[in-house]
Amino acid sequence: MQEYFLLFMGAMFVNNIVLAQYLGNCPFIGTSKESGVAVGMGGAVVFVAVMAAAITWLVQRYILLPFGLDYLQTLAFILVIASLVQFVEMFLKKMIPALYKSLGIFLPLITTNCAVMGIALICQREEMDLLTTVLFAFASGMGFMIALILLAGIREKLAVRRLPMAMRGTPIGLVLAGLMSLAFFAFKGMI
C-alpha cells in the first residue's frame, strides 16, 4: 500500500510530468491562460492518459512482445492512442453527454499531446505491471492538471500586472513555468 502511495506522490510531484519531465509543454503553455480552460484540459488529459496507458500496456504485453515486435512500439502506440481518443470522443458523446460537454472539446487536442504518449512509454520502459501503470498514469495526469491549474491561476493574475511589453504572453508563461519547476524541485528527495 505504502509503495503505491509513494508511487502516486512521486509521479504527481517529484517527477511532475511537465515540470520535471518536460512532457506536454505545448498544451501546458497554450491552455494555461484561463483557469476554466485549464481545468477542462487537465481533466481530459487525466482521463485519456489512464485509458491510453492501460490499453498500450495490453498491446505491448499481448501483441508486440509475443511476436518480438517491441521496436514497433512507437508506431503501434500512437495508432492505438489516436484511435482511442477518437473512440472515447464517440463513446462520451453517446453515453455520457454531460461529460462530453465539459471534456469533449479538448479531446482532439490530446492526440498530439506528448504527455499521454510519454506516460505510456515511461510505463513500458519502467516495466510496470498493469495496476502500477494505471496508477502511475493517473498520478501523472493529475500532476499535469495541478501544474496547469497553478500556472493558469498565476497567469490570470499576471494579465493585469505591469510587465515589459516583450515579456508579455508566452515568454512570461515560460519563465513562470521555470519558477514553478524550481519550486517543484523541493519535492526531490521527499521520497
Binding site: 498491446v59 501483441i63 508486440l64 511476436f67 518480438g68 515486435l69 514497433l72 503501434a76 492505438v80 484511435s83
Partner: peptide, 14 residues
C-alpha cells in the same frame, strides 16, 4: 509477421 501485425492493428483500429 511485423507486416501482418501492423496490418491487423491498423485494420483493428479502423
Amino acid at each position: 509477421t511485423s507486416g501482418l501485425t501492423l496490418f491487423s492493428i491498423g485494420l483493428g483500429a479502423a
